[in-house]
Write a protein that binds this DNA or RNA. Structure first.
Lengths: 148, 148
DNA sequence: AAGCATAATGAAAACGACTTTCATAACGAA
DNA sequence: TTCGTTATGAAAGTCGTTTTCATTATGCTT
């Protein structure tokens, strides 16, 4: 639990500010997100929250709603799909992602300023960017030098 | 046409080095890729190469084959899908991508060295990274201050 | 030029992650 | 408690991409 104490309160505030409603499922999903020690897929989140198979659609809808409030960040995977992470609305960062087990580490290195400046010079507006690093984490190294 | 003259030759060399074969369709696809002034989707490439609808699968297979030889770079889009670009095998760069018309500009700014170093420190191997900037290009700006 | 192993193609279906539709249920402000 | 709005559930749909498997083409070897 490496979260600030008021985090949950602020989240609920953020949600109630808009037209969103806090339902039992959303509470469970929020709880599961808070309890996660790493970004998760929608299906993994559903399972963590103890929701049935069929609630995957609710998970997606909830994540979308939370994303609109700025408390969910989406981490694209290399091939397809993405992971979701609970964040403070303006906490900009990227990730190291294990392409095997999807363990992620925070990456606080970013060229955001330069990227946006260059993009603006090219005439782009409404700029955002993607930066993720993929690899195999320590636990997922292929067994080396063995009989294999 | 901003390609080096020997580019096509080198590509064909690279292809023949492996078990790949040069077929008429692959030649057409290669020609279309060379003629493109920007990265394209698989479907757009098929159309540019004058191949029928049903050849989309051939396009994907060809792109995969070419990617294996290192002459194709894949540019992920924000939502889903990706664009393909013909590149020299070791030409590392990223892109500015218009999320509306998919026009792209080259981005030669990268933190590759630092990213990989940090990732290695964390115990990651087989590292690669994704970095793309998305926005609306000049031509795709929403009409401002007009009657709308 | 034939033969032949291997690679490429075509049609069709499968895939996976998500999104939509539409009817029903639940929320929460009044 | 009423009521307008939002959330949910079931089921099907979407989109880009991949797989399967039978058929055809390529290009190295004679």
């Amino acid at each position: 639990m490496k979260r600030a104490k008021g985090f949950l309160q602020r989240i609920i505030q953020a949600i109630k500010r808009g037209p969103l409603r806090m339902t039992r499922k959303r509470e469970r999903l929020l709880g599961a997100l808070l309890a996660m020690d790493r970004p998760v897929s929608a299906a993994a989140l559903r399972d963590k929250a103890g929701l049935p198979e069929s609630d995957l659609v609710t998970v997606y809808r909830t994540l979308e709603a939370f994303e609109g409030v700025g408390i969910i960040q989406r981490i694209p995977l290399e091939e397809s799909g993405c992971l979701f992470e609970l964040t403070e609305p303006d906490d900009h960062h990227h990730h190291f992602v294990c392409r095997e087990c999807h363990r992620t580490e925070r990456l606080d290195l970013c060229l955001a300023i330069e990227l946006e400046e260059q993009a603006r010079k090219l005439g782009f507006t409404q700029i955002n960017h993607l930066m993720e690093v993929y690899g195999l984490c320590e636990d997922c190294q292929p067994a080396a030098a063995s009989g294999d």
